[in-house]
Design a protein around this nucleic acid. Structure first.
Length: 209
DNA sequence: GATGCGATTGCCT
DNA sequence: GGCAATCGCATCT
């Protein structure tokens, strides 16, 4: 996958990541699966984005694309993001859920007694299943390191809906998911996304200002 | 030094 | 479907 993939608006990247395969290597052991749910976060202009408030986030999310950003949520969970934005902008894509495919055993070990379907269901669970840590902040994706994303040729249906768990800009339809996957964290309704409406989504924030 | 809060999860009814 | 648990970090005094 080309570096240019992450060098686009986070909404576009978030949409295109659904259906891709994500792997993380830990001590030579690889785990991962098919991405089935993502959310886009833009730069400081997006009030729901960490980069609107936090220094580290602004520095990472505004930095080079195709790198990893990890944050701690509620003092417990670690959530995995990939820095994605257009030149001169800032932003990233939160990986909310994966359909587990590779390294099932190690992921079961990390997650404990849960159905395989729930191994990577929810952003905090993705972090746990893949053993992501805060030390991974700044790690490159697809550069021969621990993190890799590969496109699949599968024809994937993608729906868009509002982001989850935020208190600002709650209506921005910047969450993308595969409605056919059982590993999606929240099965609320979404609208079908075509190339044209993606452009509308991209401009959602500025359109309501 | 103190305070407030969150890009969540899972247990409860 | 509702809500408590939990703690590091940014912001404020």
């Amino acid at each position: 996958m080309l570096d240019a993939f992450f060098h686009r608006h986070p909404v576009i990247v978030a949409h295109d990541l659904v259906g891709c395969e994500l792997t993380v290597a830990r001590d030579g052991v690889i785990a991962g699966g098919r991405i089935v749910e993502t959310e886009a976060y833009a730069g400081p202009a997006d009030p729901a984005s960490h980069s609107a408030r936090m220094k580290l986030a602004r520095s990472i999310l505004g930095g080079p694309t195709g790198h990893v950003y990890v944050y701690r949520s509620y003092g417990i969970h670690l959530c995995l993001n990939i820095v994605s934005h257009e030149p001169g902008e800032g932003g990233g894509v939160l990986i909310r859920a994966i359909d587990p495919m590779i390294g099932l055993e190690i992921m079961r070990e990390r997650r404990g007694e849960v159905p395989d379907m729930q191994l990577g269901r929810g952003p905090g669970n993705v972090g746990q299943a893949l053993a992501v840590s805060l030390d991974d902040v700044g790690s490159p994706v697809n550069a021969g390191g621990d993190f890799a994303v590969t496109a699949t040729t599968d024809d994937v249906r993608v729906l868009a809906g509002p982001r989850i768990g935020i208190s600002k800009a709650v209506d921005a339809p910047w969450r993308f998911f595969d409605p056919d996957s059982k590993a999606v964290s929240s099965h609320r309704k979404g609208a079908d996304v075509g190339a044209e409406s993606l452009l509308e989504h991209r401009d959602w924030l500025s359109s309501v200002e």
